[in-house]
């Protein structure tokens, strides 16, 4: 169980900072608020938003990272979504994709469904689970200073890396990116591969 520290980071500011200098990053977001965060700081054709398939963000990122070994792939998802597919950490750790980073926007809540507590609110330590699976880098971020140190890790340290960012559960406005599945798929593939 993780040591409890005070949570102060604001998720929108965190995501803004994380994606500010994104370069040619490919981003997969988990359903719910991480998708809105990514859209709020700037919709992008290199973003693939999951609007369903809860538990599938990390493995979508793995399939993409294996297919595009020269590109950095970031999976940004919620604590609830990660918990549903937590076995995927073992699958990723065995594959050791050096271009894959996983970032949890951990508000310790199931945000979209009414802010019910997730397991992480009760001390379940996702980075410890990732480390147990075999991730060499698995960290928890609580402060602005730790965040500044974590951002280059997410963008460029050889993966797979796992960073859990503790954020407050204060409500945020909803910014809705496109949600039609074929539209999201087509624009992502067209931008990346030049074909749909």
């Amino acid at each position: 169980m993780a040591a409890r520290r005070k949570i102060t980071l604001d998720r929108r500011k965190v995501v803004g900072q994380l994606l500010k200098d994104r370069g040619d990053l490919l981003l997969v977001t988990g359903l719910g608020a991480p998708t809105w965060d990514a859209a709020a700081v700037g919709d992008h054709p290199n973003n693939f938003y999951l609007w369903g398939g809860m538990g599938g963000a990390v493995l979508t990122g793995l399939g993409l990272a294996l297919a595009q070994p020269k590109r950095r792939v970031l999976v940004m998802t919620g604590d609830g979504e990660m918990l549903m597919g937590v076995g995927g950490l073992a699958t990723v750790a065995v594959q050791k994709p050096s271009n894959l980073a996983i970032c949890i926007i951990d508000n310790q809540r199931y945000g979209e469904t009414g802010m019910q507590e997730t397991h992480t609110a009760h001390g379940v330590d996702l980075p410890a689970m990732a480390a147990g699976a075999g991730f060499q880098t698995a960290l928890t971020v609580y402060t602005a200073k730790e965040l500044s140190a974590a951002i280059p890790v997410l963008h460029s340290q050889p993966g797979p890396v796992f960073i859990d960012i503790k954020v407050t559960d204060s409500p945020q406005s909803m910014t809705l990116p496109p949600r039609d599945g074929p539209t999201l798929k087509h624009r992502f593939r067209e931008n990346l591969l030049g074909q749909i």
Binding site: G56, G63, L64, Q68, G85, G88
Partner: peptide, 18 residues
């Protein structure tokens, strides 16, 4: 670890052109 992972992986593979 479970087959649903593979469905998601196939989605990512296709997005990446494989």
């Amino acid at each position: 670890t479970t087959e649903e992972e593979g469905v998601a992986q196939m989605a990512g593979a296709w997005l990446g052109g494989q």
